[in-house]
Amino acid sequence: MSMFYIHQSVCVSAQKTNGVIDLDDIQPIKDNKLQAIEPNYDAIPPAMYRRMGRAVRLASGAALPLLNTLTFNGIVMGTANGGLEDCIKFLNQIVDYNEGKLTPTNFVQSTTNAIASQLAFFSANKGYNNTHVHRGLAFENAALDVGMMLNEFPDNSYLLGGIDEISAYQYNIESLANMYKKEVVLNTELYNSKTAGCIPGDGCAMFAVNKQKTGATAKLKAIGTLHTDKEEDVTQYLKHFIEKNVKDDALNLFLSGENGDSRYLPYYNACKKIVLNVKTEGFKHLCGEYATASSFALWLACYKIKSNNLKNVLIYNNFRGKQHSFMLVGDV
């Protein structure tokens, strides 16, 4: 199935990706996290803004410039956890007030579909509206959903987004699960780290996509996902993916989702061997690790294709060694 063209995009991340883009001035970790720099919220009514949790806020800030200038037939988001901070705030209310009279704001904001629906309310968009929450493949499934919508309705345009937040609560849960580095590792030194754990991050990338080539920045040519913990399954899948999709076109860049966690590095190294002569770059030193970090990678691929005149960029990401994805992004 052919996918779609990416026209405009907005990326809110820990780096200077929104507004004046400067990826050379690498922003450092703060409190061992790479939290997204909050965008400008002037377009959000203050009363509404006050109710928003971080995830809804970041997504709104990233999407509003697109929603205010373009028309979409639908909105599809990928987010593993949505507003988890609101969720725990409400949970804390339940416990602290012993199931008494509680205020519903956090509860309503905590549902993962609150993001896509908030964007629909902003733009009075009554079209297709879906939220994929499949952890490390939430964004990939959202992209696939949009790909299918455009296969079914080739004249349409969609807003596609990937978004996750890192809150103090999420940090606690994942730290208990040994997901984050226990020692301080600078993000500029991320790929030299030999220990387990990653640097957590968060952010949001929004894409205006359709089937029209004219005026597009890049094309998402193919997407593939796989669940496995076996290295050979991943390499076999990659070989097949390249055979099927890359054809004679040169691959200029391999964007590797390695996150400095020694436990998951073997998957990336095995894939690098298959694209041996292709330049490889990481991206998690920029955005940190989160379930929908591949949406940052897609934004980065589009940016590099345009600014460096690249032809084809292959993104490989895995989430905790179990959920793997490949995205092939090409020039127009």
Binding site: T111, N113, A116, R135, T225
Partner: peptide, 12 residues
């Protein structure tokens, strides 16, 4: 050991 497309949706 499922290998096809796997997804989870939440629209409340």
């Amino acid at each position: 050991g499922m290998r096809g497309i796997i997804d989870t949706i939440n629209t409340a």
